[in-house]
Every structure is written in C-alpha cells, then in structure tokens.
C-alpha cells in the first residue's frame, strides 16, 4: 500500500500557498544550505536518487506532514548518512566525530568540481529490451500501487492511477527501475512510457469531462488491454 507522500487526488488540503512571482529562490539561508548539503553529500556516492527519495518517503507520516519541504530533506539525509555508514548515531547525537575513511574523503565535492557535477547530471536511460507496447496501445496499470519486490518499498505508480486503463502516448526507451534501484537491487532497466488517463476514469466524477492526467510508468507496471 502507499505511503504518506503519495497524495495525488487527496481531499482537504485547502488553497495553494501562492507567494507571488517575485519570491526569492531560497526563502531563508538554511533552505539554501539544506539543498547544498544534500547535493554535496549525494556526491559521496553512497546512495542513488531513488534511495534518497525513498528515505524521505519513509519519514513517519506525522513527521512528513509537519516538516516543511527542506526539513524533509534534512530528515531523509540524516537517515541516509547513518544507513550508509557515513556517520554514526552517536555522531549525529553530538559525539566527537571520527575522520571518515580516506577513500570516502577523496570523494568530497570540492568547490571547483561543483559546476562540472551539476552540469553532468545523472541520466537514467540505459540500454535494454525493446518496448513491448507501441504508441496508441491501451494498457491497464497494476491494480495496487505497490513495490512487488519489497513490501512498503519505493514505487512510482501513484495510488490514484492504480488499476486504471490508459493509453501509451510517449515511449522513452529503457530507464533504471526505481523499485529496484531504491533498494540496492541493481538497475533492472525497463521500457518507460507516458500513459494518458481520462479524468473520469481516475476520479469517477471529473472536474470536466475529457480532461486528462498523464503518468510516466515502467513496463512492469502495465498490462495490455485487449
């Protein structure tokens, strides 16, 4: 079943907090530091983007809801650092830090490498199997939005789009499967598609008949509709 982050379609959230068009990029100094610490720690190479997303999703629902955006990042990062053996629980709690192993220190992101690392990105496309579905094919999504390899694991099928019929509109080649990569089960690349759904099929009573929602979904989330 889904986790607290999977909130698409949920009722009860109230108005969008629109601050205006000239809001600063970073609301406060610590937001900027939180983003930068997260990116710099990621450059140590102890986890991938799917592992870090899953760490934020695994915050308790209580914390996830009360934390502001960058607090979620900090919560996820602290958990990742301990999980990845980079820091100890004692160090997090304030004990005198021990120097990290030399080979890890060598991966420290230096100021001179920042531009190169940010510009290089981390492409998720891989060589792999030819797509089973073609543009225009009708498909049905997995009926329960879940990671089939690990109970409570990471997946990218939103609960609102589970068990729904849609149509393939874009085909992106093979991409790393987050359901596997988030749990260090290898990349297991699969064909990735954009699937369009009719709003009526998703919500029962659509806001306007004929409106649509798309999701980007991996092949194993989909079955053919004949």
């Amino acid at each position: 079943m889904s986790r607290v982050h999977d909130m698409g379609g949920r009722f009860g959230d109230g108005p969008i907090p629109i601050a205006g068009t000239d809001e600063p990029v970073f609301e406060t100094e610590w937001h900027a530091r939180a983003l930068a610490v997260t990116l710099a720690a990621g450059a140590l190479g102890k986890w991938n983007i799917d592992i870090s997303r899953h760490a934020r999703e695994c915050l308790s629902p209580k914390d996830y809801c009360r934390f502001t955006y960058y607090e979620k990042w900090m919560g996820g990062l602290a958990d990742l650092l301990v999980d990845g053996g980079v820091v100890t629980r004692e160090e997090l709690a304030g004990a005198a830090p021990q120097p990290a192993p030399k080979e890890l220190q060598e991966r420290k992101l230096s100021a001179s490498r920042v531009a190169t690392v940010l510009a290089a990105g981390g492409p998720a496309n891989r060589d792999g199997a030819a797509p089973k579905f073609a543009i225009g094919d009708k498909v049905r999504t997995r009926r329960i939005a879940r990671n089939v390899m690990l109970d409570g694991g990471h997946t990218r099928l939103p609960a609102y789009a589970a068990g729904v019929e849609g149509e393939i509109i874009l085909s992106h080649g093979c991409h790393v499967l987050p359901d596997a990569a988030a749990h260090r089960l290898g990349e297991q690349p699969e064909p990735l598609y954009t699937v369009v759904f009719d709003a009526g099929d998703l919500w029962g009573e659509p806001e306007r008949a004929g409106d649509e929602v798309t999701c980007d979904l991996w092949q194993s989330y989909l079955e053919p509709v004949t």
């Binding site: 998720a124 990218r156 789009a161 992106h172 409106d211 649509e212 929602v213 798309t214 980007d216 979904l217």
Partner: peptide, 10 residues
C-alpha cells in the same frame, strides 16, 4: 486540460 504528473526522470 492535460496534467503531466512527473513520476519518472522525464
């Protein structure tokens, strides 16, 4: 209206 939910790396 078509809403694009960015659920992958696209």
């Amino acid at each position: 209206v078509r809403v694009w939910d960015s659920t992958a790396e696209i």
